[in-house]
Each structure stands twice: as structure tokens, then as C-alpha cells.
Simulated assay, not measured.
Amino acid sequence: MDRAADTPDPDSTASESPASRSNADPVLRAESVTVERGGRRVLDGVSLSVPADARLLIRGPSGAGKTTLFRVLGLLEPPTSGEVYVEGRPTGSLREGERAAVRRETVGIVFQDFQLVPDLTARENAALPQEHARGNRDPDWLDELFDRLDIADLAGQYPATLSGGERQRVAIARALANRPAVVLADEPTGQLDPDTAERTLSLLFEAREATGTALVVVSHDRSLLDRFSARVRLVDGRLDE
């Protein structure tokens, strides 16, 4: 069964992205995705669809396969079988370099452990996707992101000098640097205290609305339920009916 995250944001004021994506079409779609490791099915026939205006929470207990699904949707790991479509394009036959190009141009990723480069400043980390993009660099957009995420005064600092919440916001800026069609975030509040987590999540939503991008968050945190207009639950590698 194909699960569609098709409930629009009732209060969204986001404008369309530069690509003029249609909200009627999914920017990301998984079709019968299965991942097997060591004879075990980590994901078992998962299908879901993410429209351009989606704010989707993928939840489930530890060990349910959430991070594996995150990696597959983010083109970081190919499925054993099934297909992932990005803006209607099948990705299963792409070579790694081609998959990396799709990630860079179309999919923004926020990792649970941030994965910032330690010897680059916050600004340099956030600019990495633009450094390798096909289009022109847009330093003004990065300035706007740093302002929106309240980290403009941290642009010249290195990750080791930043708090967990500050590093998370730099990771969000990096994910949004190329105005992707969809942002995927793996447990974005998992390493933060409750107050910082709430602030960071609110900033992520605000930045998402500024870009008009779809947002998919993977988390086991039940406190996030009311913040999302669409939700699915993963149990033992399957979407729970």
C-alpha cells in the first residue's frame, strides 16, 4: 500500500521554490522498498509518497528500521529491491556519482550526529553543498539562513566551540543551502535538551516554510506528533496500518 503524506500545512505561507514544483506531485516516493542484511529484512516492502508541501513524521520504536529508511530515502544506501523516485526520476540504476549529484541538488540531509567537518567554520560547513553544486553560489541565501536560524554571530566559529543546538542549526543551514526539494532529518532533537529541541524544531519548520521544501523527520520521540500534519509509523520494517 502506498502511504501518502498528503495533508497540507494549514498555516503554511511558504512560497514555491525556484524549481516551481507542483504540490500535486511527490518530490520523493518509495515503491516496495526492501533492505536485507544478513538474511534479515530490515525494511519489508515499504511504500510511501511525499508531496512537495508535506511535513511528514516517520516514527516507530528503536530497531524498527527508521534510520535505514532515512538512508534509503536520502540515497545514502540502495535498497535490496524496490525503487526510490526523486521528483519522478527512478534512482536505482544511478551510479554513486549520479546519486551524490541528486542528493546535492535535490535532497537536503540533517544527520543525527550532525556530521560537520571539524576544521571548517560553521559558515564553511553550511556552504559545502553550494561549493559542489551545478548552479551559482548564493552567499546571500546563506546569510539569510544564518539569520533565520539565529546563528549569524557563529559563522566564523568551528564545530568544537559550538553547543549541540548550535551545531544542529548549522547542519540545518547546510541541508537547506541549495533550496532542495525535500529535507530529511534523522532524530533532529535526539541529542538536545527539551528546551533546545523545541527551539531547534521551530527554527527547522520556519526555514522549511521559507524555502517551500518538503520536510521528512524520522524520530521515535512521541512528543513530536502534534507538530506534523502527516504521520506514518514503522514497526519491524513495515509501515503499520
Score class of each variant (00 low, 15 high):
68 T>M: 07
33 V>G: 02
61 P>N: 10
86 V>M: 02
32 S>P: 14
91 T>F: 02
66 K>R: 11
49 S>H: 10
44 D>Q: 13
116 L>K: 05
127 A>T: 01
71 R>Y: 06
43 L>N: 04
88 G>Y: 08
47 S>T: 10
54 A>E: 06
34 T>W: 14
129 P>W: 00
53 D>K: 12
26 P>D: 08
101 A>C: 06
111 F>Y: 07
33 V>I: 09
128 L>C: 01
132 H>M: 11
97 G>E: 07
74 G>P: 02
83 E>A: 13
34 T>N: 13
57 L>Y: 09
121 T>F: 13
48 L>V: 11
99 R>K: 10
77 E>I: 02
87 E>G: 10
50 V>E: 03
30 A>D: 07
87 E>F: 11
129 P>E: 00
42 V>E: 10
89 R>T: 15
100 A>S: 05
108 G>F: 00
119 D>S: 10
53 D>W: 09
112 Q>K: 04
104 R>M: 01
28 L>W: 04
97 G>T: 05
82 G>I: 11
85 Y>P: 02
89 R>I: 12
124 E>G: 05
35 V>T: 12
26 P>H: 02
81 S>D: 14
48 L>A: 11
43 L>Y: 07
55 R>S: 13
58 I>N: 12
87 E>L: 14
48 L>H: 10
39 G>R: 06
70 F>E: 01
98 E>M: 04
86 V>D: 00
101 A>V: 07
95 R>S: 14
121 T>K: 11
26 P>G: 10
61 P>R: 13
122 A>I: 04
84 V>D: 04
86 V>Q: 01
36 E>N: 14
49 S>Y: 06
128 L>Q: 00
42 V>T: 12
42 V>R: 05
48 L>N: 06
